[in-house]
Amino acid sequence: MNTRWKPNVTVAAIIERDGRYLLVEEHTPDGLRLNNPAGHLDPGEGLVQGCAREALEETAHHFTPTALVGIYLSASHTRGEDGITYLRFAFCGELGAEVPGQTLDAGIVRTVWLTPDEVRASTDRHRSALVLQCIEDHLAGQRHPLTLLHTQLTAA
């Protein structure tokens, strides 16, 4: 049997305001963890639109991506077995208004604003190493224009 390997495509919002980063605290199989507002790209959705949607669902705030911070490949494999691979597109941008009455996505407990040092000090609570890596890249000034990305969606 010949099967094709396919990574899980995710989008993440790297949101900074006044020297603090917006993270979500969420239930995971490993307990409560901190993560950037992030999630899976939906079928028929562009990367920028997916990031804006995920940020709204997880933070109850509008978010407008303005630049790509980075593209990250994260894989968990055990010897002799296929694991899960994530291809993450992380965006920074402008945080908009909170949407009154908007409930947070299932599993999201709350949002928290942390300084970079607080994020670094809490790595044992991160959902993955990408939480800190994306913030460090943002702090280093990594910004790529959205024109780098192209979406072509066609009807089947």
Rank of each mutant, 00 (worst) to 15 (best):
M1P: 08
M1F: 10
T3I: 13
A13D: 04
I14W: 05
I15H: 05
E16K: 13
E16V: 07
R17M: 07
D18N: 11
Y21E: 10
L23G: 07
V24L: 05
V24G: 02
E25S: 09
H27M: 15
H27S: 15
H27V: 15
P29D: 10
G31L: 02
L32H: 11
R33V: 04
L34H: 08
N35L: 02
N36T: 14
P37F: 02
A38F: 00
G39N: 03
H40Q: 13
G44F: 15
G44R: 11
L47E: 06
V48L: 02
Q49T: 07
R53K: 04
R53S: 01
R53L: 01
E54S: 07
E54Y: 01
A55W: 01
L56T: 11
L56D: 07
E57T: 00
E57H: 02
E58M: 13
A60K: 09
A60M: 08
H62M: 02
T66F: 09
T66C: 11
A67Q: 13
A67W: 06
A67I: 00
V69P: 13
V69G: 10
Y72W: 14
L73P: 01
A75Q: 04
A75I: 01
A75C: 02
A75H: 02
S76N: 12
H77I: 12
H77P: 00
T78A: 06
E81F: 08
D82F: 14
G83R: 01
I84M: 11
T85G: 01
Y86L: 09
F89P: 11
E94T: 15
E94M: 10
L95I: 14
A97P: 11
A97D: 15
E98V: 13
E98M: 14
P100M: 03
G101V: 12
Q102L: 05
Q102M: 12
L104V: 12
L104I: 13
D105Y: 08
G107D: 04
I108W: 05
V109T: 10
T111D: 05
V112S: 11
V112H: 06
T115F: 10
T115E: 06
T115G: 06
P116A: 06
D117Q: 09
V119M: 09
R120P: 00
A121P: 00
S122F: 05
D124L: 06
S128R: 00
L130E: 07
V131G: 06
L132N: 01
L132G: 00
I135V: 13
D137Y: 03
H138C: 14
A140K: 13
A140R: 15
G141L: 03
R143W: 02
R143I: 00
T147C: 05
T147Q: 11
T147F: 01
L148D: 14
L149D: 10
H150I: 14
H150M: 12
T151I: 08
T151A: 11
Q152N: 04
Q152L: 11
L153A: 09
L153G: 03
A155L: 15
A156H: 09
